[in-house]
Computed example of a mutant assay.
Amino acid sequence: MPLGQLPPSMLQSLNLLPKDNVSVTLFTRHSIRHVATGKGLAGYDLQLTEEGIALAQYWGGHLITSTGRQVLSCTTSPIQRCIDTASHMLFGAYGDTTKIEIIQNNLLVEPGSFVEDHALASPFFRDLGALGFINQLIQNKLPGMKNSAQGVLDILNMVYALEQKQAEGLNLVVTHDTIIAVILSYTLGIAEVTSADWPKMMEGLFIWFDGDNFEESTMQMVWRGEQKQIVIAQLKEQIQMHHA
């Protein structure tokens, strides 16, 4: 069964979603792709495997049937494997890839949320590998980079805006492991990201917000079967203190 390849905590997390009229976002890594070479660095050209296609379709269908929510929006990284993941999830949910428009957003890939100058940053990515690069990024020690904390807030603000458009349903956001890893480091207070923290393919966060504006909102986040509450104002304060 294709869902057997889904990280088990994703099914556990479904039980923690709110039951009332709340818009929820699945902020997920793309499905299973072909294997990368060289320090685990995945080029933009790597595509989904047949197993990855099947997993995305089954997971998309299961999300709709198990939660009773309909997809409200679909936002992805411009990289093809993310677009394809979203398309196959929509096909699994509805048997139709045109029911929901797939919107590409540069915040969900690099250069985007964290990288400002690709020419300056890319040699460090190649030398350090993905894990080493992210830990240097979190400490803001790399040239050509945006402040990583601000990048996280920009992404969360985007998710908040998606959820304000309609009262109930599911927003689908498909991105990359590096983007999710940085968000986890700040929201969970992880000083140094390890391989155990690293998001697997087709693994993601469920996010929803309470509050009438982003700056004063509280974010509920479910990751690996556990729910955490993050007050955005407190997160911003912690970030400012850390980088003072």
Results as ranks from 00 to 15, higher is better:
residue 117 D to C: 06
residue 151 G to F: 08
residue 149 A to H: 12
residue 175 T to W: 02
residue 146 K to Y: 09
residue 153 L to P: 01
residue 196 A to S: 15
residue 193 V to N: 07
residue 172 L to A: 10
residue 141 K to N: 13
residue 105 N to C: 05
residue 103 I to Y: 05
residue 170 L to N: 01
residue 107 L to F: 06
residue 186 Y to A: 02
residue 104 Q to P: 00
residue 135 N to D: 08
residue 161 A to C: 09
residue 181 A to Q: 05
residue 141 K to T: 00
residue 111 P to T: 11
residue 153 L to V: 14
residue 112 G to T: 05
residue 197 D to M: 05
residue 118 H to V: 00
residue 137 L to H: 09
residue 164 Q to Y: 03
residue 106 N to I: 05
residue 136 Q to G: 08
residue 127 D to H: 05
residue 119 A to F: 08
residue 151 G to Y: 08
residue 126 R to I: 12
residue 173 V to N: 04
residue 183 I to L: 11
residue 155 I to F: 03
residue 137 L to N: 09
residue 109 V to P: 00
residue 124 F to P: 04
residue 185 S to D: 03
residue 114 F to W: 11
residue 153 L to Q: 06
residue 173 V to T: 09
residue 167 A to W: 03
residue 104 Q to L: 00
residue 113 S to M: 12
residue 131 L to M: 12
residue 167 A to Q: 13
residue 186 Y to N: 02
residue 109 V to E: 07
residue 135 N to P: 02
residue 152 V to R: 03
residue 100 I to P: 01
residue 126 R to K: 12
residue 91 F to Q: 14
residue 99 K to Y: 08
residue 199 P to Q: 15
residue 179 I to W: 01
residue 93 A to P: 08
residue 174 V to Y: 07
residue 125 F to L: 14
residue 108 L to G: 02
residue 169 G to Y: 10
residue 167 A to G: 13
residue 119 A to K: 14
residue 174 V to D: 04
residue 194 T to E: 14
residue 142 L to I: 04
residue 192 E to V: 11
residue 173 V to E: 06
residue 197 D to V: 05
residue 107 L to W: 03
residue 196 A to Y: 15
residue 174 V to I: 14
residue 136 Q to T: 03
residue 190 I to W: 02
residue 199 P to V: 07
residue 167 A to P: 05
residue 151 G to K: 09
residue 173 V to L: 12
residue 138 I to F: 00
residue 130 A to G: 06
residue 165 K to V: 13
residue 117 D to V: 02
residue 93 A to R: 09
residue 116 E to R: 15
residue 163 E to T: 12
residue 101 E to H: 14
residue 148 S to E: 10
residue 194 T to H: 10
residue 182 V to Q: 04
residue 120 L to E: 14
residue 130 A to C: 11
residue 171 N to S: 12
residue 152 V to F: 10
residue 143 P to G: 08
